[in-house]
Amino acid sequence: MRSSKYSIFTYASMIGVPALLMLILIAMISGYEMYINLFAYVLVIALLVFSTTGLIDVFLHKKYDGSMKKAHVESEIKSNTEPMLKKGSEVDIIVKRFNGSSHNFDKVTYKFFANKFTTVLDALLGIKSHQDSTLAVRCNCRMGICGSCGMVINGRPRLACETNIMEIADSEGGRIEISPMMGHLLLKDTVTEFTDFFERHKSVKPSLYRKNAKEKYSTTKEYQQSSEELDKFLPYSYCIMCGLCLDACPVVNSNPNFIGPQALSQSFRYYRDSRDQKGKRRLFEVDSNEGVWGCEFSGSCSKACPKGVDPATAIQLMKGELISRIAEKDDYAEKK
């Protein structure tokens, strides 16, 4: 399917342009001046044609990618199920274990029999139950909603409970390598410390603010909200506090003072909620180098998020709002 992505002209240009250049070179060396001009004309025309078709290709390519994305996911589902349906197989699970007393790492390889359903978490717990009970694992819901089991699997930060072994063993070279999230303080094996992460979250005051606290705790009436208003903050409310985005963020890893993608996205979540009455003060609270301006927009946080929260976009949107409110901000600072 991929071979039909570009038109024939593009492929022709890949061969044609260097070939014509070679011919011109040969003509120059050999002294055939009339041929040099001829080849040069042909080259210019060829380049014109190729660049036009190339542009068309790029356009087609984009369209192609968009429409194929869904079909691709579906075919992946189908093609992955069939060969695995019948049999499982033994997989090497390599765990980079951290020893909390000696502060050393120890790479241990376990053999584990996985079938088509087995997740990395299943394997770790299976190993713990029947091979090596000293292996430390933090987990709870095993359905991707409690946020306990973030770790680095084959170099990528992911949730162990949502990562199917056979699937990544197939696509990532037959082995499973697990290490803790190195961006957090390490406790034992794959388990990391979360105090710092929770403090970052708390520091943006992530709770629904109402001017009248009494009314907030009264229970006589709901605050009405339209579906459109709901959609404005809903995508940012899926955060399960697993810590993967913070682990993936290159800025936090080099400058711990940057508050990080998780906390900022949660600040934005409440800022966008029509029920929240803190208004733009929320923006001004993160208007600093430790806040939104620390973000260098690498986008790794959004890529790492297992729940589709997009902290990178949230932060850029906050930057945008802040720029358009510079005057108000001075006002706010004065009052403060």
């Binding site: 009264s218 009405q224 409310s237 029920r275």
Partner: peptide
């Protein structure tokens, strides 16, 4: 019913 409203007041994104 009061609890559902309370949860609305502290930010649960109820479907509407």
């Amino acid at each position: 019913p009061e609890e559902i409203k309370f949860f609305d007041h502290i930010g649960v994104p109820w479907n509407r």
